[in-house]
Every structure is written in C-alpha cells, then in structure tokens.
Design a protein around this nucleic acid. Sequence first.
DNA 1: CGGCCCCATACCGAGACGGTATGGGCGCGC
DNA 2: GCGCGCCCATACCGTCTCGGTATGGGGCCG
Lengths: 100, 100
Amino acid sequence: MSLDQLQAVVTIAEEGTLLRAARRLHISQPPLTRKVRALEEELGVALFDRGARGMRPTPAGHTLVASARGILAAVDAAAVSVRRCADGRGGEREGPGPER
Amino acid sequence: MSLDQLQAVVTIAEEGTLLRAARRLHISQPPLTRKVRALEEELGVALFDRGARGMRPTPAGHTLVASARGILAAVDAAAVSVRRCADGRGGEREGPGPER
DNA sequence: CGGCCCCATACCGAGACGGTATGGGCGCGC
DNA sequence: GCGCGCCCATACCGTCTCGGTATGGGGCCG
C-alpha cells in the first residue's frame, strides 16, 4: 500500500469513473486500473463494483476512502509542521493535530 | 514523500545509525542514505545531524518522526478496518479511529 | 441494431530502486 | 602521533516497477 494508491482510490471514489480520475491525477487510465487492482489483491478485498456506468465503491472501498482522506491530510500536515520547525525558528512542538 | 521514506526516518531515529536501520528494514545502507537525502531535499530541511558516531535527528527530524509514527499506525489501522469490513460480514462502520 | 462509453489487457520504453564496490572523515586505542 | 575501525557518502550497474500507447470486450442508450 502506498500513498499514491490511497490518493487514487479517493479520486476514483469522488469522480466515479477511471477516466475522470486519471485526468485529475495527471496520468492515464490503464495505470490507474493496475493501481487499484494491485491494492485490491494486496488487501484481498474488492474495493469497487465495476459496472458499465463506472466504478462504485463497495462497503470496504468506502471505509478505505474515509481512512485514506485522513492519512493524506496527516501527511500534508506533517510536511507543513516539519518546514515550520526548521524554516524560521528552531523549536516547535509536534503539531500535525488538525487531522480529520 | 512516501510511506517508505517515513518508515526509514522512524527506524533511523530509533537505531541511531544507518547500518542498523538498514538491517532492520532488510535493505542495504546506500539506498537508505539516498532515501533520507531525497526526503531532506524534497522538504528543504535537514532531518539528521551526521556525526562520526551516527545520525541524530534535528528538531525538524524529531517532529517528522513523531508525525510519521502516527501516519504509519493509521495506514495499518486502515488496512485492518478494510479487511474487517469485507472479510466476515458485509457491514461495518468506519472505524480507523485509534490513530496516534 | 448501431454507436458510444468505460474498464481490462498487451506490449514497450523510461525512470526509479536496490545491490556491490569504493572513498573520505572522525573518534579511539596503542 | 599514528594506525585502526566505524560510519556515512558516492559511483556504477542490473533489475524491476511505473507510465504511455494501442487494442479488445462488454453493457447501456438511442
């Protein structure tokens, strides 16, 4: 599991189709297919229901999307905290707090 | 920034030297050097002080280690939640809560 | 029934990742 | 003061994953 894959899952869930998600992620559709399938195989769980209309998240997929949003936000917050800690001054408490 | 790099930073901070951290991560020392340097350049911040004795985290490094621990725990919790959601039964509330 | 949209697969090239070998720097013991 | 050992940094190379293009199969709509 990688942050890349989590971002992919979140975007697909938001867009509903691989093509639109791929456009938003600045990649092509086939790599996205592989990313999702790889994650599904790694977890041993189907994350999306494929239909002729697009992809709809399964209950497991929905759960993962919710968790992934928090994780991605935490990563971003961590980067900000680290830069804050060394950029201007040299002392800051750990403050990635604003998660979820 | 990748989960791999976060894991590396945490392990290095715990072990104090690249060699011991590399052993724990089942990789070699040179790739670890590159991982850390890449992350430092990406953030524009020095994460460790290199001395003849080993590597000691800077304040920024310490901050990142703390955040990284929470993120990695959240990722693990997410995987568990997803599997729980689809493994036995088909309905579970989103419960990655125990983070940090 | 024809057309369209969407996902899946096959194949290929480039970039990233990891491993081995080697060098430079510093502290410690003799 | 000098040699030794530890540790991080760099150079080079093989492999493997990742992304892109081209193509196929399937279902819904008009």
